[in-house]
Amino acid sequence: MSWLKRTLSSSSGRKWLVALSGLGLILFLVIHLLGNLQIFLPDESFNEYAHHLHDGLLIVIGDVGLLVLFPLHIGLVIWLARENRKARGATGYKAPMTATKQKRSFARVLASKTTLYIGLVLLVFVAIHVWQFRLHHSEIGNLRGAILETLANPMWAIFYVLGSLATGWHVFHGFQAAFRSLGFTHNRFTPALVNLGTALALLFAIGFSSIALWIVIAQPHI
């Protein structure tokens, strides 16, 4: 198994795993968003969905998948980031990092340089989010009611809007970068993947934050 160890400990191999785990997490986000958007339905459909989810196999696959993908993605990125930081050497540049000759948009360049730090923000966000709506609620019972109650508080609504925007920002750079790290580059399809990543980023940012905004503004009845 030494070839496997050599592959996965090399920076190229680690980038490959970070890309794969990242795409896995994006797949999870799509399913998560589709489930969450059912909260807009007026009757008991969200609670029924939550019960079906928790009684079925999907939750087990999701839990195991996330327990593998999350630590793998974060752990490997931290390992890479520590080496990347050392690679600059003891003396850094005096001139600011904002100098660039890139023709790409400002947002894209900024995203590529801040995705790592937004990832750390997301780590904190996810920890609070999972505690609040999963671990803290061992009884799913009326999950919809619990969500409506929590997000009616403007502080929590802002917290979730910021978390949604951070998720979008992370995916904005991460999605297309993942395909590049996996070795997929093509004159026609790479630009298409860049656009698809932007669409996914907007979908996550708007989709998830719309729930928090709807609850805090419209104050729907529990």
Partner: peptide, 20 residues
């Protein structure tokens, strides 16, 4: 690529500054 890593160069974050 292994030699580059051993020499202490970093990994790629796809900022694309190199190309520019």
């Amino acid at each position: 690529l292994d030699m580059a890593e051993d020499l202490g160069f970093g990994a790629c974050s796809w900022t694309q500054e190199c190309e520019a």
